[in-house]
Amino acid sequence: MDFQTERYSRQMLFKAIGPEGQKEIGKKHALVVGVGALGTHTSELLARAGVKKLTLIDRDYVDMSNLQRQHLFTERDAEKAWPKAEAAKARLKEINSQVEVAAVVAQADAVLLEALMEDVDLLIDGTDNFETRFLMNDLAQKYKVPYIFGACVGSFGMAFTIIPGVTPCLQCLIKKLPMQGQTCDTVGIIAPAVQMVTAHQGAEALKILSGNLEAIRKTYVSFDLWENEYLSLKAGALKDSGCLSCGENPEYPFLQTDREMKVAVLCGRNTVQIRPAESGGLPLEQLLHQWRSAGLEVGGNPFLISVAKAGTKAVFFKDGRALIHGTKDLNEARKIYHSLVG
């Protein structure tokens, strides 16, 4: 048995994959958007499984609070504040030197992601916000590439496989950008919830990459590991022929750059302004409640709330707009915004 055959022998012994499926996996390129908890787990899994290429995209760097649930990273990565995509790439190369890994340290916006789509076979969700998820959802539809959605918070999580032309898309399932304020920064997260999501994402990825399309899960999984709950929900009825993302006359709204979240430094001030893609507005009262119970220092009035966070002060308005005082760094401001709103 040669080196590579030995390496993947247990995966090839699994009948539904076999040597043929392994060969298929070895030709495939997956784009992992977000290299945090979900993204590090799925990219480690796919590197070990022997995909041809992984592209990892993340704007953030490793910090101490990531180590509790984000694989691939060590204390040294946190001390050096290494970019997540680069730190992940370095470790993945030690794990499987045969896999091509491209690290992109940047904001995953529409222009960048479209430029990366050329030979991508699969989109994997590792992001921490719905803005980027809706963008990935549009990309999946426009380029006819499967997209494996996943998300988690606390002990709760969910996963769903979106196959263009077959299943409903994320926009069919969730009409509006959800802004509930439950994020890992407000209600925490335990690592097993991450693993539970990536176990589902990983199995779906192996089915898709090995050509076992008939095995793909048709249900939306939602679970709570602390409450010992597991739901597998049929989703087909939500497929909407009028959907602007996957319907008969798609417009891919999140690929329209004029609809993107606007992030800009306010002229002459140490403040970044953020205007979200949709102007559905923010449920200020609910957010106030979430942030207060997360132990954050909160103030405000009926028109706005202010929150102290990581040395900055973030002010949120009812119309969805936010000002992040104390920084001129656009990525840091985005990070704070998503860590508070989702």
Partner: peptide, 23 residues
């Protein structure tokens, strides 16, 4: 999952599933 127009019947079990954003 049911669309908004779907009519609920007696004894139907309903689940409210919030999408969460973490990752």
């Amino acid at each position: 999952f049911a669309k908004d127009e779907w009519i609920i019947e007696e004894k139907d079990e309903i689940a409210l599933i919030p999408p969460v954003s973490g990752g």
